[in-house]
């Protein structure tokens, strides 16, 4: 899988993970703050840019008529594919970490 947004930046990664549930703008920031244990606090411009970019690529979409006037977003099937791909990549890197840990033990 090749794409200009891959590998995902920390910001994009957290937003995609958060949007496995539908959220509106500010709630995405709150969710990401919670998921990252307070390490990633999104600012408005960064969030807008990310949403715009992710929507353009069809990785997220507006969720159908929820929460009244506010716009709610949600991950798409294509977005899920991206996450699955990133999961494999990170798993592999993690396995490399674990391998070197074992070497140290011996």
């Amino acid at each position: 899988m090749k794409h200009k947004l891959l590998p995902l930046s920390e910001t994009m990664h957290y937003i995609l993970l958060a949007l496995r549930e539908p959220f509106h703008g500010y709630a995405i920031m709150q969710k990401v703050e919670e998921m990252s244990k307070g390490h990633v606090i999104l600012a408005a411009g960064t969030l807008y840019g990310a949403i715009d970019n992710l929507s353009k690529n069809g990785w997220i979409k507006p969720a159908a008529g929820e929460n009244g006037r506010r716009k709610v977003y949600q991950i798409t099937a294509q977005g899920e594919e991206v996450l699955a791909h990133e999961k494999q990549r990170l798993k592999h890197i993690l396995s490399l970490y674990e391998m070197s840990d074992e070497c140290e033990k011996i």
């Binding site: 703008g25 500010y26 920031m29 408005a44 411009g45 807008y48 715009d52 506010r70 716009k71």
Partner: peptide
Amino acid sequence: MRLDYQDYLSTHRFEEYKEIYEEFGW
């Protein structure tokens, strides 16, 4: 105060842009 620049936005995207900023208190 913070200044941003955006290229042409459709009415729809302009609303979206403003909505997100306003939710953050801007």
